[in-house]
């Protein structure tokens, strides 16, 4: 499976937090042939299981979130302009003057009210213009409660780098798909649960019940992380192109020391490029997997990503490939 081609499919499927139906169906289709069973839980998490031979095998949960940040339609003005609320961590300066598309594929643009200075950006000062001439004509296309996202899509940059949205976290989903394909014909000692979680962007809500249901012994999260390799960035050892980022800490979690150590030593042994990641902010599904139920040994493989939550999220495909290889080795060592 080619990561880039997969991403091209995954990134054009508007699926804001809580409304992941369309990406879920696509992922279900893509992963089904690599696993033994696929289910969807009450919140909409997609859970694909590859069974171990031994019924009492240890369980490993591999999780990437399939939702993306976006906007909720809250009000339609008489002039047909649409007021929205943010879903997840929207940066308005990144979103201003972007093309947006609704879950019903209605196109529009998100813009600040005239004369609003960047310093004054607040969601109440923004609206979506779908070109409707008045409220009535807007209401024919959009209802209160509909969701918009900034238009998705991915392009190639120099070398092995790609740019677009929402690489956060369709790149994690692509890694899981690729991993599932590689392990499809391998007999593993542990039960593998590939989980495509919902509602990560609104506070890691989906992975918690998913982990509760699975009750894994070990868990690994696949998500993007910030980098320190751009002009003006805060100091951070993590950089694009230096390999899979083995998470040590972000503001929601401190990863299990042995999981970190195992990942690092496997990377050394198998000559897989890797780096250690300490993120000063941010949270991931690692935290709910660590503490759900009676807890699991939790770690994370992160994909370094520049300009997170913008329309030009930038990653290096080599880092994603390293994540696939390192995750594969990790799963194979689990007994």
């Amino acid at each position: 499976m080619n990561l880039y081609t997969t991403l091209q499919k995954l990134c054009t499927c508007p699926s804001v937090s809580g409304r992941e139906e369309s990406i879920r169906e696509l992922l279900r289709e893509l992963i089904s042939s690599f696993v033994d069973e696929v289910s969807v839980d009450n919140l909409g998490n997609l859970i694909a299981r590859k069974k171990a031979k031994n019924a009492k095998a240890k369980k490993v949960m591999l999780c990437a979130h399939m939702d993306e940040i976006g906007f909720l339609v809250t009000f339609i003005e008489d002039n047909g302009m649409i007021r929205v609320a943010p879903v997840g961590g929207i940066s308005l300066s990144a979103a201003a003057y972007s093309e947006v598309v609704s879950e019903k594929r209605v196109a529009g643009v998100i813009v600040p009210e005239s004369k609003t200075k960047p310093k004054e950006y607040a969601i109440d000062k923004f609206y979506v213009d779908i070109g409707a001439k008045d409220r009535k004509s807007a209401e024919r296309k959009v209802s209160i409660g509909d969701f918009f996202v900034v238009r998705g899509g991915v392009r190639r940059l120099a070398g092995n780098r790609i740019c677009g949205r929402p690489l956060d976290d369709r790149i994690g989903c692509a890694i899981l798909l690729s991993l599932a394909e590689r392990l499809a014909s391998v007999e593993t000692a542990c039960d593998i649960y590939y989980v495509f979680s919902v509602q990560e962007e609104v506070g890691c809500r989906g992975a918690l019940p998913a982990a509760f249901g699975i009750s894994p012994d070990v868990s690994l999260c696949f998500d993007v992380t910030g980098t320190g390799d751009t002009p003006g960035a805060d100091p951070m050892a993590c950089a694009l192109g230096k390999g899979a980022a083995v998470k040590i800490k972000d503001s929601s979690v401190i990863c299990h020391e042995e999981v970190v150590a195992t990942l690092c030593s496997l990377a050394e042994t198998h000559k897989i490029p890797y780096q250690r990641e300490i993120l000063l902010y941010g949270g991931t599904d690692t935290a709910p997997m660590q503490l759900s139920g009676s807890g699991s040994r939790a770690g994370a493989l992160s994909i370094p990503c520049r300009y997170i939550h913008s329309a030009v999220e930038t990653c290096d495909l080599g880092d994603a490939e390293a994540c696939v290889s390192l995750a594969e080795q990790f799963v194979l060592t689990l007994k």
């Binding site: 009450n42 919140l43 249901g213």
Partner: peptide
Amino acid sequence: QIKQYVSGGNDAGSIHKSGVGVR
């Protein structure tokens, strides 16, 4: 009617995430 603003929170917040999740 549909609430036309995003505000507040209630017990749904903990109910929907409880156990294996609740619609």
